[in-house]
Amino acid sequence: PGPRLRKIVAGVAVELALRRWLDANQVPYDLLGATAFTERDKYDLRLGGRRVDLKSFFITDRDDITALRHDPGWLLDAAALVPEDQFNSHKLEDGDVYVFGFLAGLEARQQADTRRVLDAGQPVELVATFVDDDWLGRAQWRSLGTLTLHNDGPLPLELEVGGQGRDREAIVEPLVVPAEARAAVAARLYALLYLRAFQPPPAGVDVRSSALHRTHSVLPSDWHNIWVYGMDVFIAGWLTKGEFRERSRRLPAGSRVKQYPRTQTVNRSLPIRDLRPITELARRIKDFASR
């Protein structure tokens, strides 16, 4: 879950940076689908009547970041990728728009990396996730009963418990679990999504649900630092879906592209240099809005 969550973090960071730029340049846009808070489409944009799918790429290799910061033209022969299954779905029409963005930044993947960034006074976001359907409320939507956390470590543990209540509303509860002792979550959770720690817990944390009659042990190695140590955001360019269809080619999973050593899925792909400039899109939208 660590790499997947950091990709989500990077994608939202790029999208928010783009929205700030649109605001600063008085380019009007709508936010679509702000429905349930778990909906992934919450951050989707609509510009000038066209739906926008922002595709973000997270560049984490130090040499690549150095090259990119020195010369942004490094991006021109990176790949504008759209996963083929998404491309073939009917979520976007041919007049809708793909925008391609990049975040250059570092990850703290290993526990030693997290220790180093803490020593340097940098932020961390340590998250342990729950993948079992019962804890996530997927098997049955019912209260998890009393949730009790046991801290196996020698120091009090400051945590945040994140989940959902009966009406699927977000619940975030701070909780301090004393050393080698228990503490109960006050809120009645129907789904337990994550625990967050502010320091790397040196020992295990056992989570007990009175309704499930089960205990889930979170080990020290289960904490993922999902903070992204960003440096630069680039918005490379855009094409309509119809244009992208004409100009892109199929790229098998496992292919090397400039920004990734191996792609994870089958994509449609074209070089970044074949896109249209984002300033042109902004100008068109302003013209559209003033008509």
């Binding site: 879950p1 960071a13 928010l16 778990t38 942004p72 996530l136 918005i235 240099r273 300033t279």
Partner: peptide, 28 residues
């Protein structure tokens, strides 16, 4: 065809990551 001058470089600050982190946790 894009040139390097067409690429839009935007400032980064931690509030971008903070927004992403809060979103990622809720998307679990």
């Amino acid at each position: 065809m894009l040139t390097a001058l067409d690429l839009l470089r935007l400032p980064y600050d931690d509030s971008l990551t903070r927004a992403g982190v809060e979103y990622a946790k809720k998307s679990l």
